[in-house]
């Protein structure tokens, strides 16, 4: 089943008089259960592509279909709704809400989805356990290491049981050991739950986990290969 389909997608950023063509007619299809890595040098357009798949941004031209829904004409709130139920995010910086505890950060998407307290509690504990953070649920982000924060971010991304998790350079700010740990957790969740994962990265440690590697250069897909995943 196809969770994301992009057809001839272009994204042009205009800063003053200068136009930057971040994506230049890209077509891509992501199947359910894939563990895909978008790779390429800085400025190749991988983050832009990830943001379009995540409905955080809209293409200048072309079509983006997520979970069978055409997204081009959706307004801000409709896009928020689509994200809420379908997509989870893990960002490069450990994007947790600093005033909330690890537990509350994971709980937030469940709250936004209107889950009742009993359901929320069960799900949060389950997820913290899955990322090995159940001991630290009551800690605030500033009391956690980078690796721990990223694990909480993964748990949060998984909270609403999304079809797809998008991760932008998830290991960029982690040391080798923590980076491997986070990747192991994500790979395990991919296998166990069948959740689709898409990464934008140039970290070889991430690439080696991927079972599909899409290479971008200057806003174009130059290579799309099935890899032998670890």
């Amino acid at each position: 089943m196809e969770v994301a389909k992009l057809t001839d997608v272009t994204r042009v950023y205009k800063i003053g008089e200068v136009e930057t063509r971040a994506l230049n007619g890209v077509s891509l299809s992501i199947q359910s259960g894939e563990f895909t890595s978008l790779v390429g040098p800085s400025g190749s357009g991988k983050t832009t592509l990830l943001q379009l798949i995540g409905v955080l941004d809209q293409p200048t031209s072309g079509k983006v279909v997520i979970d069978g829904k055409e997204t081009t004409d959706l307004n801000r709130n409709q896009r928020a709704d689509l994200r809420k139920g379908t997509i989870g995010f893990v960002f490069q910086f450990f994007a947790l809400i600093p005033t909330l505890t690890a537990y509350e950060n994971v709980e937030m998407p469940l709250l936004l989805n209107g889950k009742n307290p009993a359901e929320r509690k069960q799900r949060v504990l389950e997820l913290l356990d899955a990322v090995g953070m159940n001991e630290r649920g009551h800690h605030r982000p500033d009391q956690l290491s980078g690796g721990q924060q990223q694990r909480v971010a993964v748990a949060r991304a998984l909270a609403t049981d999304p079809k797809m998790i998008l991760a932008d350079e998830p290991t960029a700010n982690l040391d080798t050991e923590n980076g491997e740990q986070v990747m192991e957790i994500m790979k395990k969740l991919n296998k166990e739950t069948g959740t689709t994962f898409v990464f934008a990265t140039h970290d070889p440690r991430v690439i080696k986990y991927a079972d599909r590697v899409v290479t971008l250069e200057d806003g174009l897909i130059v290579k799309d290969s099935k890899a032998k995943a670890k």
Binding site: G54, L56, R76, N77, A80, D81, R83, K84, G85, G88, F89, F91, F93, A95, L96, I97, P98, M108, P109, L112, N113, R156, T160
Partner: peptide, 16 residues
């Protein structure tokens, strides 16, 4: 700003 972006990314609507 970034935090608002995160909240929005995880599905918080404008009115929320």
């Amino acid at each position: 700003t970034r935090e608002i972006g995160i909240l929005s990314a995880i599905g918080m609507k404008g009115r929320q």
